[in-house]
């Protein structure tokens, strides 16, 4: 009872203010301590509580994870490399096959052809030239590496037929008449040499009366596609 009364008097005195002030600071102190302990605990609890073997396990686990990820990265890099290579390869295949396709189209006479070559004019004043002479000319041009040939505007391909009657020569059942304008695309020098080789086609044609062969090299020759009627039997 005496203690209680002294407490009451203390509250009414200067001591009361002192006590309240200190109590306020200690309350703040309590809040701070709790908060700090909590922060510190949450920050360190995870690893602090772990034993040494646990930590070793964690480290080795992380190392394993790193290794797996490294292996995965290497795998993916390899895959990327393979895919890149494959795409390069397929691009190469594409260009190669389109080149082949172009060559085949030229051979089959499906496309117009431009390029250097020769222009040959075959005169036949006495109509002594025969169909096989024409075939000989074509053969010599092919020997000279001609890629595309036309006679009087008619494209000569593998399927082209040359025939003759008493009066005239027919190419693909179309009558052709002298002078024959022969166009050939290829290396002009080589084709020229193939035609003028001694004992070759020019000498042979020259031996026929009224037949002569004039050859001119040309840097730009244009040969049309074969008429589609003949080659469209796909």
């Amino acid at each position: 009872m005496k203690y209680f009364r002294s407490f009451i008097t203390a509250l009414n005195s200067q001591a009361k203010r002192t006590q309240i002030a200190i109590a306020a600071v200690t309350m703040l102190l309590g809040i701070l301590i709790v908060t700090q302990l909590r922060v510190h605990q949450s920050a360190t609890q995870a690893l602090q509580n772990a034993t040494e073997s646990d930590l070793t396990q964690i480290v080795s686990k992380l190392d394993g994870e790193i290794n797996t990820l490294r292996v995965e990265a290497a795998d993916l890099r390899l895959q990327l490399f393979k895919i890149e290579q494959a795409s390069n390869n397929s691009a190469e295949v594409m260009t190669e096959s389109s080149k082949n396709l172009n060559n085949l189209k030229i051979i089959a006479g499906l496309t117009k052809v431009y390029g250097p070559g020769i222009k040959a004019l075959v005169t036949d004043e006495d109509a002594t030239l025969r169909a096989y002479d024409m075939v000989d000319i074509i053969t010599e041009l092919r020997v000279g590496g001609a890629e595309a040939i036309s006679i009087n505007g008619i494209r000569i391909v593998a399927a082209t037929g040359i025939s003759e009657t008493q009066e005239a020569i027919f190419i693909n059942q179309k009558q052709v008449a002298a002078p024959y304008e022969v166009l050939a695309i290829g290396n002009p020098e080589v084709i020229h040499d193939a035609l003028v080789i001694p004992g070759g086609i020019r000498d042979k044609l020259s031996s026929l009366t009224g037949v002569s062969l004039y050859i001119t090299k040309d840097a730009e020759i244009k040969i049309n596609a074969a008429s589609s009627k003949k080659v469209s039997n796909k």
Partner: peptide, 20 residues
């Protein structure tokens, strides 16, 4: 006496508020 009460009140308050 009052400071001790204040300390306990502070601790309780800190636990309740859980200041992040």
């Amino acid at each position: 006496m009052l400071p001790l009460i204040g300390l306990l009140a502070g601790i309780a308050l800190g636990l309740v508020l859980n200041i992040p």
